[in-house]
Design a protein around this nucleic acid. Structure first.
Lengths: 94, 94
DNA sequence: CGTGTAAGGAATTCTGACACG
DNA sequence: CGTGTAAGGAATTCTGACACG
């Protein structure tokens, strides 16, 4: 029992199949969002994609924004902005 | 971003492949421990097993106990005792 | 008892492409 | 632009069994 809860959210262990089940997206959609640099799954030695719980959350968020009429490029820009802000907060807060 | 970190530990999403990679056990071993009622993976609609991070921890724990010379039946007994104690603590505390 | 292995079938995942609009 | 689909190959996972000890 050495591991801590915190890492579970970011560990890439989830298969495409589970991703489609949890997000209600198609494989095509999930791969397309990767192609468009919105998500970054890891690959096993044999090339199968692995996603984290965080990726799942992100995909659900992305799907919602698309449904609201946003374009993928804009979503990526927003995500990157948000990421930058998190980084800045970290630096400011020390 | 609705989900909470806590559930990640128990959600069954990890494939056999990842389990063997993370635990260094063989598929045979993992299935045998299930046969012996030490772990309880879920099944997808199509019959493939899914494990949680908690299952991974448990398997690592089990592997250690076996290496120490314990028998599987004894390990199961211990695990169940521990579980009962956790249950009792919950009742006592509230 | 706990684990390895070969066997065959069924389901998964991948890539690149064509299609629609 | 974002998504569906058919195509074929490669790797995964499953079960039941035989083996060793």
């Amino acid at each position: 029992m050495l591991e801590n809860n915190f890492s579970y959210r970011y560990k890439k262990v989830i298969t495409m199949r589970s991703v489609t089940e949890m997000t209600n997206l198609s494989e095509r959609q999930v791969r397309y969002y990767e192609e468009k640099k919105l998500i970054f799954p890891e690959r096993t030695a044999l090339g199968t994609r692995k996603y984290s719980f965080f990726d799942i959350e992100l995909l659900i968020d992305i799907a919602e924004k698309i449904k609201d009429g946003l374009q993928i490029d804009d979503i990526r820009t927003k995500l990157m902005k948000h990421e930058n802000q998190v980084e800045k907060m970290k630096i400011i807060q020390g």
